[in-house]
């Protein structure tokens, strides 16, 4: 089932045409990877999926991004609700300078999603369990999130995000500041999470895209050159440009 449908999407940074006529359908409970050389528009495309680009001055967007049948660019769309439903994890872990507990509970409290302490406790526990931090941190919930290792911080950021029950998780180079072992752990976590969430990941690491994703899109100069099953993209892509990129001859 398609959870996101991008139709004729164009994005301009003032006069710069950063996304050009992108059309793609993203399947629910799958991992979709976006790859391409620096500046190709993959992060920009990812950011259109929860309207984070709206915060940048001079951005103009044309086309539709339909999530669960509703165009998130409709004038009456509730941006806060969209961003709760489509959460984002960034390159460097960015926990708040708060306790582990309060990091995870932050979205619940600010959005007034729960009123009772025991409900918050339950969701904090459930979220930390989902990112496999609960067993290690259940006795240290008052410790600052900033005291954790980078990998744990990134897991904490994912827990903070899933506490508000999104359907879609966007990850923008989530492992670029992690060592290989921590990267492997986060990749494993993504595989665990996809049964509950739809994941879209931007990565520079092609082997990572090959390892973890179900479908891969290759972008170049703002265009989506090819979008297909990951197995096909990495064994027999339809476009020569894709083959040149994935085989390291270009980019």
């Amino acid at each position: 089932m398609d959870i996101i449908e991008i139709k004729n999407l164009n994005l301009f940074y003032t006069n710069f045409h950063a996304i050009k006529d992108v059309n793609m359908k993203i399947k629910a409970n799958k991992i979709t990877a976006l790859i391409g050389p620096s500046g190709c528009g993959k992060s920009t495309l990812l950011r259109t999926l929860n309207r984070i680009n709206d915060t940048i001055e001079g951005v103009r967007i044309e086309g539709d991004v339909i999530v669960n049948g509703k165009n998130i660019y409709d004038p009456d769309a509730d941006v806060d609700r969209i961003r709760r439903n489509v959460g984002m994890v960034f390159q460097r872990p960015n926990p708040f300078p708060l306790s582990i507990y309060n990091n995870v509970a932050f979205g619940l409290q600010i959005n007034r999603l729960v009123s009772r302490k025991d409900e918050t406790d339950f969701i904090v526990k459930e979220s930390l369990e989902d990112v496999q931090l609960w067993d290690d941190l259940k006795d240290k919930l008052k410790m600052s999130g900033l005291e954790l290792s980078l990998e744990q911080q990134q897991r904490l950021c994912i827990a903070r995000l899933i506490a508000v029950k999104p359907e879609i998780i966007l990850l923008d180079e989530p492992c670029s500041s992690l060592d290989p072992m921590a990267t492997a752990h986060i990749e494993e976590l993504m595989q665990e999470l996809k049964s509950k969430y739809t994941i879209v990941i931007v990565t520079h690491n092609m082997q990572q895209a090959a390892r973890i994703s179900d479908e891969t899109g290759y972008m170049l100069l703002g265009k989506l050159i090819e979008f297909d099953a990951t197995g096909k993209i990495f064994t027999n892509p339809s476009k020569q440009e894709t083959d040149d990129y994935v085989s390291g001859r270009f980019g």
Partner: peptide, 9 residues
């Protein structure tokens, strides 16, 4: 080299 695409084939 972790070849892919035409190289892997």
């Amino acid at each position: 080299n972790q070849p892919v695409g035409a190289d892997l084939r």
